[in-house]
């Protein structure tokens, strides 16, 4: 799918072995992609047509089948980023593989967290009557989202790949430190200030087996999509780095040739 892979120019021997010159797909990613499509198709059919509407929330309960997996994947992605950043830092960034996975995972995580926030606020509008509630979980999620947007901004600034790896690894680990503090303080803040209890039907619905199974399938489908995206994105980043290196080598060679001539 990602057709942006560098063709031709970056084909120095450093490219990862399983990668054909036409893209970042391999047999493994194709299998995962196909599985994701199949499971996703089932989730769509089941979520829209087979599962029943909720007695209180009506059809809006169907948002849950996208919202919950999206939030779950976002957390999975940020945990992946933290772990790979930690490993990368511990290995003193000898190879950039872990750093690239960390960056790819954070990108996908921001995407899914954005999705979770949008679907969540749509659901909130239908169920609570407001798009947003300053509830601890929502507030923490919003801060988490902004934090990783900042992380991506740092990654996107052109600089030496090793320096980028160091900076972003520290940032990813700081986020792990930050989130519990933010959550704790927001919980404390709301518990002290929320006198006027808002109409707040917890948001938990009673799920029958089919709904639970659909939700679970949604999580599986989104997880497959996550793995698929991260693998592609990570390989793309490797190609970009290789191209940068090749471009530099070519430039140096050209200058050398000039001085000889």
């Amino acid at each position: 799918m990602t057709g942006t892979a560098t063709s031709g120019t970056g084909s120095s021997g450093t490219g990862s072995s399983g990668t054909s010159s036409s893209g970042t797909g391999t047999l493994f990613t194709r299998i995962i992609g196909a599985a994701a499509l199949v499971v996703m198709a089932w989730v769509v059919v089941s979520a829209f047509f087979i599962t029943p509407a909720d007695t209180q929330q009506g059809d809006s309960v169907r948002i849950m089948y996208a919202h919950v997996p999206a939030a779950w994947i976002a957390y999975l992605a940020f945990i992946t980023t933290a772990i790979t950043s930690g490993i990368s830092l511990a290995r003193r960034h000898r190879t950039l593989g872990f750093d690239r996975v960390a960056g790819a995972s954070a990108e996908v995580g921001v995407l899914f967290m954005g999705l979770a926030l949008v679907t969540g606020s749509l659901w909130g509008r239908l169920t609570w009557g407001t798009f947003w509630q300053w509830d601890p979980r929502l507030t923490t999620t919003l801060f988490l989202f902004v934090t990783y947007v900042g992380y991506l901004a740092v990654r996107n600034i052109d600089s030496d790949p090793h320096r980028r790896a160091r900076r972003s690894a520290v940032l990813a680990l700081l986020a792990v430190l930050e989130i519990p503090l933010v959550h704790f303080s927001v919980v404390l803040w709301r518990s002290l200030h929320q006198e006027a209890s808002v109409l707040n039907p917890d948001g938990d619905v009673r799920l029958d087996d089919l709904m639970l199974f659909t939700l679970f399938s949604g999580v599986v489908a989104f997880t497959l999509i996550f793995v698929w995206l991260v693998m592609h994105r990570q390989r793309l980043a490797a190609l970009q780095d290789a191209q940068l290196g090749a471009g530099l080598d070519a430039a140096i060679a050209a200058r050398r040739a000039e001085t000889v001539a």
Binding site: F143, V149, G150, A153, V154, I157, L171, F184
Partner: peptide, 23 residues
């Protein structure tokens, strides 16, 4: 220290540091 030496560091510092200072 995170943004030291980066281009566009002023706006970046705000984006990175302000969420952390929420507590």
């Amino acid at each position: 220290a995170v943004v030291a030496n980066m281009s566009g560091r002023d706006s970046l510092l705000a984006l990175l540091a302000l969420p952390v200072t929420a507590p």
